[in-house]
Design a protein around this nucleic acid. Sequence first.
DNA 1: CTTTAAGCGAGACGGTACGTCCGGTCTTATT
DNA 2: AATAAGACCGGACGTACCGTCTCGCTTAAAG
Lengths: 223, 223, 223, 223
Amino acid sequence: MGSPSSASDLPEPAVRRRTGGRAARVRGQVLAAVGELLVEDGCDSLTVDAVAGRAGVHRTTVYRRWRDVGGLLADLLDSAADDSWSPPDTGSLEEDLVALNQEVFDALADGPTLTTVLITASFRFDDAARALSRFWDDRHARSAPVVLRAVARGEAPAATDPRAVLVTATAPLYHELLLLRTAPDPALPRRAARAAAAAARAGALTAHAPAPAPTDADADADG
Amino acid sequence: MGSPSSASDLPEPAVRRRTGGRAARVRGQVLAAVGELLVEDGCDSLTVDAVAGRAGVHRTTVYRRWRDVGGLLADLLDSAADDSWSPPDTGSLEEDLVALNQEVFDALADGPTLTTVLITASFRFDDAARALSRFWDDRHARSAPVVLRAVARGEAPAATDPRAVLVTATAPLYHELLLLRTAPDPALPRRAARAAAAAARAGALTAHAPAPAPTDADADADG
Amino acid sequence: MGSPSSASDLPEPAVRRRTGGRAARVRGQVLAAVGELLVEDGCDSLTVDAVAGRAGVHRTTVYRRWRDVGGLLADLLDSAADDSWSPPDTGSLEEDLVALNQEVFDALADGPTLTTVLITASFRFDDAARALSRFWDDRHARSAPVVLRAVARGEAPAATDPRAVLVTATAPLYHELLLLRTAPDPALPRRAARAAAAAARAGALTAHAPAPAPTDADADADG
Amino acid sequence: MGSPSSASDLPEPAVRRRTGGRAARVRGQVLAAVGELLVEDGCDSLTVDAVAGRAGVHRTTVYRRWRDVGGLLADLLDSAADDSWSPPDTGSLEEDLVALNQEVFDALADGPTLTTVLITASFRFDDAARALSRFWDDRHARSAPVVLRAVARGEAPAATDPRAVLVTATAPLYHELLLLRTAPDPALPRRAARAAAAAARAGALTAHAPAPAPTDADADADG
DNA sequence: CTTTAAGCGAGACGGTACGTCCGGTCTTATT
DNA sequence: AATAAGACCGGACGTACCGTCTCGCTTAAAG
């Protein structure tokens, strides 16, 4: 599924008031400073003062355009929406999920990544939380073809819910690495992908179908 | 899996210097104030000043015994470790997992629970993060029998990793409700439990076994 | 002696740049806004931003023409120089002074008048201080006939200094109402006028004459 | 009448919370810094930041104890109330008034004195204005004997109002030097004192007595 | 039952960051 | 090419909390 940190193009101002020269340059400097500070010291050191200082810009300028740190993070997240991202297509559901999981794993595993810091920050700032939700919704929507192709190949029942499959596959990674804070297990991406694929095959991830008779139906779906 | 908020016994100080009288009373007042403030206003308003004021205790007293807010949270979490908790035993893996998931769901679903706030806080304070990890490790250890019984009943291969099953079952709940922040779906606990049970049945959650040939092996494991 | 607030014609710019059209209209709007803001909130709220906003003019326009708040006040004071003012002529020195004092009293007595605010402001802005001095010099010059007529009538020695008489008469009002901030006493204008008239009659306000033999002359006056 | 700047002992805290050690030392440093800054740069440069910096004390300490610049000035004024001050006693009303006036003149005449700055500041800060009024009330009360002795000596009518005499004597100095901003005239203290003494002798400064028949009575008094 | 020292209340302090206001300059877009 | 809109820099404001310190005083535990 990737992470919000994979792009850094900062394409265009949200409100195109002044496209040229200083205004755009200032925005770029500030967002760059936000990113740098985040990876260096984490969320705690991300103060408006520090951002302004790093960006070589006055405090009031930051307040004028972003209101607070949450606004900065939201803008960074939105600007980091990498429009060119597309899901893998290996020809098998499980391998596709493994590839997606590996992307997530890489973004979370080694120490305090920009990704982990952004997620952490989303717990403190509503703006950032909303921006992060937007990012994930986008990634889920783009990744749906992975599941739809699997259904087309007969790897899963027709009613399989793409989003449920994706969440089932990736959730253990976030849970282990962010919440439980266990040491990164290189086998984790594949195991979680396999489990999600198996559950999908078993018809346990169909959309809104409360599964008539769980035990037998599952056995049938498998067989 | 429950939540860290289910107990409030506050058993004893870690260092038993003065067990009786004022010292213990002060500790109880302070931890109670921490809990109240957390559920009222969330993690942001949990300042030492506010805690001291609410507890009717002087600021310096809090600093003297807990050092900072993280210490308060860690103490609260440790004191909230409900020693009497035990996992469900319905006779079927899936139903056991559903019961566990329902407990998690209830603790996370309705608004800013004490549980969600504690998890949020764990991102800001290392002490709290460690205490929370301890709590979850304890719950996973206690819940292992659920999987072991399932193995004994033949519902899953012998090599099935209890922890992996539990994480696979509960992770989607935390992911949806805490990270993705989607509206609570009452069907979610059962769906995630079914998916985890199906994956376990399919042998996708065996410990440290990299699963030689995914497709055929799974089919064999099912049959 | 009146006050600088008695006129509101805003006749012409000090430097007659553009008498007609937009330029003059803008000047009128801005000076009017200055006056309004002064009487509403006093000197503290008289910011360039507020003036520009009230006048419906851009900030930079104000900076361009008046440089700062002091310039605005100076312009307002100069424009408020009421050319038609003339001193009373009742036929007696004391009654003339009473009339002058009454004018001052009315301008200072009831709450924060425009006059009091302008004087207050003159302590913060040199431009305004100079403009206020010009205003007072003008008033003293115009009021000199009051004393000269009294000398002609024989109410005071020939060497009597008109300015000293006027200052002696009005100073207690400013002192009481602005500096000592005592409650306005309706008897004050007359009492101060009587005192000044008495001093003039006694020859205590002669110009640059160090009073030849103070003791005997005074003793005579007493006896 | 002197000035509020004539004492610098800073005798005791208004609220004697902590008399010894650091608290008292801090207060002294801060008030000293206020005085120094006032005489150096006037009222405009008297910011909390500057005071704290000069005093070698942190900003928040100043805010904690004095709230704002007005509070600082008020405390300085109160602490500068020189309890040992007493009016002159030369044996003659006029000479006493001359001495008083000379004190005022010296405090106001040469450039921006601490006195002039304090008065200026009182126009911006209510606290300082009140403290200044208290100071002047005190000085007027202490100076009353000057007039009472003159009455006892027969230099003025029994009903003479001491405060009116003092105000009449000193007001022209404040008016000329602070408001009209004329160049200091060394003859001014004596001339104003003579005028006030003459008015008192003439019975023009009696308390609350509306003066029965101004013209004739005055003529009698003169003649 | 006394001592004694751990713990507490109280107040002040240095310090960081906040978010706001205003003054004054400078840049951009318009007309 | 001039001007109006607006973004910027810089300084100060007043506040909230942090974490620390130094005093006395209480009081629980040990001798």
